[in-house]
Structure formats: structure tokens, C-alpha cells
Simulated scan of single mutants.
Amino acid sequence: MADWITGRVKARKQWSDTLFSLVVDADVELFKAGQFTKLAWHGEDKKVARAYSYVNPPGQDCEFYLVTIPEGQLTPYLAGLDVGDELLVQRTAAGFLTLDEVPSGRDLWLMATGTGVGPFVSMLAEGSCWQQFDHIVLVHGVRLGEELGYREQIAELTQDQPRFHYVPFVSRETVADAESGRITHAIADGSLEQRVGLTLTPEHSRVLLCGNPQMVRDTITELKHKGLTKHLRRKPGQILMENYW
């Protein structure tokens, strides 16, 4: 239990039937935007813990963007928490989906599905990305319009950034200002690049992926067709990723 501390729910927001956010007051160690920690509950015989990215920038109240998995061991418990309730939070953060891991480039593409948008909201709020890149594109794919969580906050964070592009994708209904279909198809047919007026190239583009493993795999496949490669410390490339389960 050395690295676990007790946090207290300070606020919560329900985005849809299954999506919700928790703001938690917890004395965690300073982290980098894009990193994750673990939340847990302690039953009679075991502790159930799962990793969740910080949505907040470093130094603010901890915030997490969550989806309820009915058969899950933890999210039904977290979904039932209300203001004032306690939960366990791991004090130290982890993860390498951070801007200091990204090789220098001109354009930063942030591509997420579902709650995978969380770490990218943290980066936009933290703010160093604006000095590091000339253009930033946030692409967020969901099934339904109500699942475009943090859309208003993203607009507020970027209202003075003319070189920022927000491209929502909704696959199961038509939503104003959102693209229909899937992110991977829009990469394949060039329509994503056309919408933002930027080309995905190994020279200029750096891509961070965060979402379900199938989306991550399929997107990497499409990006490789454009000459981009996974970034490794021993062999620099253009694509960094985080699988969200």
C-alpha cells in the first residue's frame, strides 16, 4: 500500500449512459501531461486496480474520464461514487505518451477514440505543445455525438490558437460539424488531410494515438502507407501510442 493514497471525489459529470468524469482530491506526485495513474478499490480479499490517464494538467485537481464496463471489476464501482466518497489513487504516474518523448517536428496529430481523448486534453491545458509545434490537430472518434466528451473545454483551451484543428468523427449518427465514419478511413482516402489543410508526412508529422487497440493497430497501418513509422528510442520514428485496455 506504500504508493497508494486515499482520494476523495470532489465533483463528477455524467456525459452519457456509460461515460462519466470524476474530479478527485488526492495528494499525488507531479506528473507529465499524457501520463496515467491507477485507481482502485479494496475489497475484503483483494484490491482491484486499473490505469487511467489524467485529463487535468499537472498541478490541478485530479480528473479522470471513464467508461462503465458493466461486467468490469472496477468501473461499476467507480460509476457509483458520488461527491465525498473515497477511492484509492496511486501516487506516482507512469506512461510515455508525453511530449518530451516526441521527436521535433512541425505538425502534431493527436488521434483518439472514446476516453482516449483524456491525455490530449491534459496536453492542451498544460500548454507547452503550443511552443513545440506549428500546427496541432486533435482527431476524436466516437459512436454517438453525446460521447464527444470535453468538446466545450477543448474549444475554450484553443480559442486563441488559430493553428489548432479539432476534427470529431461520429460513426453511428449524423452530427453537425462532425465527420461521419471512422478515422482510419479518412486517413486512407486523404479526406482528413484535406479537411485540415495539412499532409501526413514523415518529415513534418508527429502522431500520438490513444484509444482501443483495434483503432491503434488500424491507424498505424494507414500511417505506415504514408511512410510514417513507430517511434522507438533506439530508432526514432513519428508514431507514439497508448492502448486503452
Rank of each mutant, 00 (worst) to 15 (best):
Q90P: 00
L87V: 04
V137W: 10
F36D: 11
H185K: 13
V167Y: 02
F31S: 07
M1S: 13
T68A: 01
I187F: 12
L108E: 08
G211N: 11
V55H: 04
T174C: 07
V24F: 09
T92P: 00
T199M: 05
P58N: 11
M123Y: 06
R91P: 00
Q14C: 02
A178K: 02
F96K: 13
A186S: 15
V9Q: 06
V142A: 07
G190H: 08
A178T: 03
A186E: 04
R195H: 06
V139I: 15
Y166G: 06
E222H: 12
V175S: 10
W130P: 01
T199Y: 00
R234D: 13
G227N: 07
G127F: 10
D160T: 13
P236T: 10
D100W: 04
M1L: 09
V67R: 14
L74P: 01
Y150R: 09
A40N: 05
T68M: 06
D107H: 15
E152D: 15
T18K: 14
A11V: 00
D189E: 09
R163T: 15
F64L: 08
S16R: 04
E101A: 14
E44F: 04
Q153V: 01
L99T: 12
A26H: 11
G197I: 06
P162W: 06
L22S: 04
T37K: 07
G7I: 03
K10D: 14
T158M: 03
A51C: 15
P57Y: 03
L240V: 05
R8M: 13
W15Y: 09
S171D: 03
K230N: 15
V196L: 02
W245M: 07
L39A: 07
I154W: 01
A125T: 03
G59V: 03
I220E: 14
C129T: 08
F120L: 12
N56L: 01
R12L: 14
L208W: 08
A2K: 11
P213K: 09
R12D: 08
E44S: 12
V216R: 04
L223G: 10
W15V: 01
R163M: 11
G197W: 01
G118W: 08
L157S: 02
S104Q: 14
L22T: 03
L97G: 05
A26K: 07
R206Q: 12
P236N: 09
R233N: 13
L81I: 03
S128E: 15
A33H: 12
G181S: 04
F36I: 13
V175M: 11
P58V: 08
R8C: 13
A176W: 00
H204G: 00
K13C: 05
L30C: 13
P236K: 12
Y65I: 00
A79W: 00
F120I: 12
I69V: 15
G118D: 02
L208K: 07
L81C: 07
F96G: 11
T68D: 10
K10C: 04
H225W: 03
K38M: 15
L209T: 07
A112H: 09
G72L: 05
D177L: 06
Q131Y: 02
G181K: 05
L124Q: 04
D107T: 13
R106Q: 14
F96Y: 15
V137Y: 10
R8G: 00
W41Q: 12
Q14I: 12
V121T: 08
P70L: 08
G43L: 05
A33Y: 08
G95E: 13
K224I: 00
T68R: 10
M241L: 15
E44N: 12
F64M: 09
